[in-house]
Simulated assay, not measured.
Amino acid sequence: MFVNLNAGPVNRPRFLGELGSLSQTEINSSEFKYRRGAEVFGEGEPAKYVYQVIDGAVRSYKLLTDGRRQIGAFHLAGDIFGLENGGVHRFTAEAIVDTTVRLVKRVSLAQVAESDTTVARDLLNMTATNLRHAEDHMLLLGRKTSLERVAAFLLEMDTRLTAAGVMALPMCRRDIADYLGLTLETVSRALSILHEKGILGFLGQTQRQIVLLDRPKLAELDL
């Protein structure tokens, strides 16, 4: 379920970050409000748009043949997703919480890139960044222990989410487990260990608000 938002761009991220210099006459965009759990696009669907999270959070995932879910990435406010190198989406994208997303037609962006070398370069940089994230994620899943994986996740979220000393996670522990290739119980146990070691603290009953008390010790676990 989504709601089309045609409000002005007041206090909203400019489109595509590095491409924010593009004017609205060059790139036409629409904004939609997706309810928690709503699908933004499905795996195998035509990749007609490029997306940017205005507020909220989105998860990209695949359902494996045995029914398990593997989350490939979390997209937070300002992030770009859905930029494919083929004609269809390789993952399903779903709103984690009530989320506002900006949509831009892929063909219109490609047309601008053909005549603007700066835009073409920025699109290439975004593709390279996505590839680097995929490579890092593959290494995390293949070579790190459960505690190292949770530490790596917290350090990633620390750089992307922490404000006023508090890391407010929009995703639940099940999401974290499916991102790290672990069970829910293993993630909970790893967080408890980090809490007992005095590396992090929890705020609130849901324990989604985390305060990192000892970043150097946490970084030592992410080797």
Rank of each mutant, 00 (worst) to 15 (best):
Phe2Trp: 10
Ala7Thr: 14
Pro9Gln: 13
Val10Asp: 12
Asn11Lys: 11
Arg12Asn: 07
Phe15Arg: 12
Leu16Met: 15
Glu18Phe: 12
Leu19Val: 09
Gly20Ala: 02
Leu22Phe: 05
Ser29Gly: 05
Ser29Lys: 04
Lys33Cys: 04
Arg35Ile: 05
Arg35Trp: 06
Arg35Pro: 04
Gly37Trp: 05
Gly37Phe: 03
Gly37Lys: 08
Ala38Pro: 06
Glu39Ser: 15
Val40Tyr: 14
Phe41Gln: 09
Phe41Tyr: 15
Ala47Ser: 14
Tyr49Trp: 15
Tyr49Pro: 12
Gln52Tyr: 05
Val53Ser: 11
Val53Cys: 13
Ile54Arg: 08
Tyr61Pro: 04
Tyr61Trp: 08
Leu64Phe: 02
Thr65Gln: 06
Asp66Leu: 02
Gly67Pro: 03
Arg69Cys: 01
Ile71Arg: 00
Phe74Ser: 02
Phe74Gln: 00
His75Gly: 11
Leu76Gln: 08
Leu76Trp: 11
Leu76Asn: 08
Ala77Tyr: 04
Gly78Pro: 03
Phe81Val: 10
Phe81Leu: 12
Phe81Asp: 13
Gly82Cys: 11
Gly86Gln: 13
Gly87Tyr: 10
Gly87His: 11
Thr92Val: 10
Glu94Thr: 15
Ile96Lys: 08
Val97Thr: 05
Asp98Phe: 09
Asp98Pro: 07
Asp98His: 06
Thr100Gln: 08
Val101Phe: 11
Arg102Thr: 09
Leu103Lys: 08
Arg106Pro: 05
Ser108Val: 15
Gln111Trp: 03
Val112Glu: 13
Glu114Leu: 07
Glu114Gly: 03
Ser115Phe: 14
Thr117His: 10
Thr118Glu: 07
Arg121Trp: 13
Asp122Val: 01
Asp122Cys: 05
Leu124Pro: 00
Thr127Leu: 02
Asn130Pro: 03
Leu131Lys: 00
Arg132Phe: 00
His133Asp: 01
Glu135Ile: 01
Glu135Asn: 01
Met138Lys: 04
Ser146His: 08
Leu147Gly: 09
Val150His: 03
Ala151Phe: 10
Phe153Gln: 03
Glu156Phe: 12
Asp158Ile: 12
Thr159Cys: 08
Arg160Ser: 06
Thr162Ala: 08
Ala163Thr: 13
Ala164Asn: 15
Gly165Thr: 04
Gly165Val: 11
Met167Trp: 06
Met167Arg: 08
Met167Ser: 06
Arg173Asn: 09
Ile176Gln: 04
Ala177Ser: 02
Ala177Ile: 00
Asp178Cys: 01
Tyr179Cys: 08
Leu180Met: 04
Leu180Arg: 01
Gly181Thr: 05
Leu182Tyr: 06
Leu184Ala: 06
Glu185Met: 12
Glu185Cys: 07
Thr186Ser: 12
Thr186Cys: 03
Ser188Pro: 05
Arg189Asn: 06
Leu191Tyr: 01
Lys197His: 03
Gly198Ser: 00
Ile199Asp: 00
Leu200Arg: 02
Leu200Pro: 00
Gly201Lys: 04
Phe202Gly: 00
Leu203His: 13
Leu203Trp: 14
Thr206Glu: 15
Ile210Gly: 05
Ile210Thr: 07
Leu213Met: 10
Leu213Arg: 11
Pro216Ala: 00
Pro216Tyr: 10
Lys217Thr: 15
Lys217Tyr: 11
Glu220Leu: 14
Leu221Trp: 14
